[in-house]
Computed example of a mutant assay.
Amino acid sequence: MFPYACVLILGLGLWAASFAAHASNFEIAPVVLELGMNRSAGVIRIVNKDDHAITLQVRGYEWTQLGNDDQLNSTEALLISPPMFNIQPGAAQVIRVVSRQPQVSSSELAYRLLIDEIPDSDQTTVKFKFRISMPVFLQPEKKQAPKIDWRVESGNKQAIVVQNLGGQRTKLLNISLGLPDGRRVAPKAAANPYALAGAKRRYEFETDIALKAGLPVKIYAIADTGPVEVETTVMP
C-alpha cells in the first residue's frame, strides 16, 4: 500500500445569495515518486473524496536549488498521461509518469509535478484554485549517498550553511544551532526540507548574540538517516 496525502483546501466562508464556496478534498499516492534505470515509469493515483467534480492539470518541471531558492524550469524529460482530466465524486484517476531521459547521470536528478485545479466555467460558484507540488526523483544506476558539509557563518546574515556534496538528496528537519551557554537558536523556516544533490542551502537565523569567528557551536538536525549532531566553529 502506497503512503498517501489527504489534501483539503477550504473555502473562506464567502456566502452570498447565489454564491457558494466549495472545498476540494482528495487523496494522492504516493507522495514522492522515484524512477530510475530499472524503473523508468511510475503511476500516481488520485481519489476525489469530495461531493463535487474537480478538473486537474499535471505538469512536470526540472527542479534545482540556487542559493536558498527552488528553481522550476519547464522540461520534456517527463511524459505525463493524461496531463489533464476530470474526476467525479468518489472516483479515482491514475496518472502515468514516464522518464524520457536516455541515460541517468552519476547523480540523482530532481523534478517536481505541479498538480493544479482548473476552475470550471460555472459563474454561480466561487471556487478556490489549489496547487500540489510533488517531488519526482530519477536515480542513477548506482546510488550515491548524500554527503553533507556543515558550516556556520557569522556576519550580518548569520546562517547554518548546508552543502550536499553527495549524489542523492537528503531531507533535513528541526535544524537548530547550539550555543556554548546551552541555548539553541532555530533558523527561519525553509521553503522545503530537501537539500538536493550538489545543492547548497542557507538557513538564516536571528539572535541577540553576535556569533564571532572561532566560537564553538553545535548543529542539530533530523536527517533521513537519523539524528545529526555536528561540532564545529563559526566561520568568518
Rank of each mutant, 00 (worst) to 15 (best):
S107W: 09
L56W: 07
E62P: 00
F19E: 13
Q103G: 12
N68G: 01
Q57L: 11
I95P: 02
Q93T: 06
V31M: 14
P89K: 00
A77I: 10
N48Y: 02
P89A: 00
F85T: 08
V47M: 08
V97L: 11
A41H: 12
T64W: 02
D69F: 07
I95R: 09
E108V: 07
V47L: 12
H22G: 09
G90M: 01
Q71V: 11
P102A: 02
V58R: 02
M37F: 14
R45N: 11
N25M: 10
S99N: 02
I87A: 10
S24E: 12
A53K: 01
S105Y: 01
I87Q: 02
Q57F: 06
S40W: 13
R45T: 12
R39N: 10
G90P: 01
P30G: 10
W15S: 15
N38W: 06
L72M: 08
P30T: 05
E108D: 03
A17R: 13
A91Q: 03
N73L: 14
V98C: 15
A20K: 14
R96E: 13
V97Q: 11
T55K: 09
A91Y: 04
A23N: 05
E27K: 08
L78N: 02
A17P: 11
L66R: 09
P89N: 00
T55Q: 11
R59Q: 12
S81Q: 15
R59I: 06
A29D: 05
E34C: 09
L33C: 04
P30C: 07
Y61C: 04
L12C: 04
A77V: 06
S40T: 10
G60D: 01
R59M: 08
P82E: 08
A29Q: 06
F85K: 05
L33S: 02
G11W: 10
Q101E: 08
N86W: 01
S40R: 14
Q57V: 13
P82Y: 09
L72F: 08
I80F: 01
V58W: 03
T75W: 04
V98Q: 14
S24K: 08
M84S: 12
A77M: 06
K49S: 04
